[in-house]
Design a binder for these strands. Sequence first.
DNA 1: AAAAATATTTAGATTAGTCTAAAAATAAGT
DNA 2: ACTTATTTTTAGACTAATCTAAATATTTTT
Lengths: 219, 219
Amino acid sequence: MFSQTEENYLKCIYLQLEKNAQSLVTTSVISEQMKTTAASVTDMLKRLSGKKLIHYKKYQGVLLTKSGRIKALSIVRKHRLWEYFLVEKLKFQWDEIHAVAEQLEHVASELLIDKLDVFLGRPKFDPHGDPIPDHHGKLSLHRLKNLSLLKPREKGKVAAVVEQDPDFLKHLERLQIQIETPIKVLDKAEFDRSMTISINGSGTVNISYDIAKNILIGK
Amino acid sequence: MFSQTEENYLKCIYLQLEKNAQSLVTTSVISEQMKTTAASVTDMLKRLSGKKLIHYKKYQGVLLTKSGRIKALSIVRKHRLWEYFLVEKLKFQWDEIHAVAEQLEHVASELLIDKLDVFLGRPKFDPHGDPIPDHHGKLSLHRLKNLSLLKPREKGKVAAVVEQDPDFLKHLERLQIQIETPIKVLDKAEFDRSMTISINGSGTVNISYDIAKNILIGK
DNA sequence: AAAAATATTTAGATTAGTCTAAAAATAAGT
DNA sequence: ACTTATTTTTAGACTAATCTAAATATTTTT
């Protein structure tokens, strides 16, 4: 049985490793993500290490142990299932749900999360397109391309977003970009790496490189 | 913004006052309900008093302030709405839900609880028959009689249960007694105050005084 | 009225989690 | 190689919440 704070740290480390599986996660990255001081992070890393949830090397960074990873996947599963519930059933907007799911994910009940999974029809992806681990911690992966790497005339559907900042998600909504939206690259400007894209086969819009790099495209 | 522990204490005090509005709530009653020591209770009561949530007199007991009562009603509302959700939507048994709702009730989001209320069809009572306060803290009351006080040939429907101990609720299930079940008193034994009742107009069963006193009957 | 029992509070200790400031380690620049 | 900058850790302090043991207040019994 772990505290909410411990669970949050494990989830944070897991998400960092999901982004970049090659490197250890550093104290300063965790400090930034958890919005706390470096000293607090060091304290907590020592504690998690003592509980055999992470491999921790001073000054070098951390990785999850097998049991740490299992625990982290469990939290991520809960987080994403609750996000699905909030959007599909309670009609939340996709930019409103993160903070609420951050609280719901700590409810300690296997039965609850299993029944919620069934109730929702065993969804494989959350409203941002991220994979929902199943009961055994397995997740569906789809091969996605970063929109910023697509060439003119290439196309596909929006499958996920990298960044989940509410302002960013609101901006996508204004552009009428959401999960499953068909996208085609029309042109790319080399001077600022912005791109012109068509949305839903009709609307044409220019988006910055910063926007494009946070959108993942699938078939 | 209050801690989960503070919210739990407020709820506990509120529920005691709901049972017996005439008297101050004592340290030992709270200690028993919260499963903690009398010293811990005294510490917390001092803290809640400092935050103007309770009126606290040493050695005499506590009452809720206006803002303490508002906060307590908010927690009770959340608890009971989540219990409704767990039974109606996720098909939990009514004896399985208390512990889960005890966690869900601390999710701090007004929007969440309002959307959940709408999603559930604005229920007035939880699965145990307890009234769910509305957005303004108002609750529907029905005049109920304790089953143990009914006389032979009096009848009505099960409207609520006083005790929510899971073993007790399971026992009622085995007797096929649940909310809305029609009950008629056939006989009362004076030596042990047990009573013979008919359930659903057909089944006849003898129940102890201890069972009867925990069932509330409405029209 | 006094003694005994019970309830409650106080004092001091503990753990979890946070912080600041200083010290130590590492990385970057010259 | 040395200096400077940055990152990280350590030490000690803080708050919240819990406890035990002892002291205090109240209630009950004699």
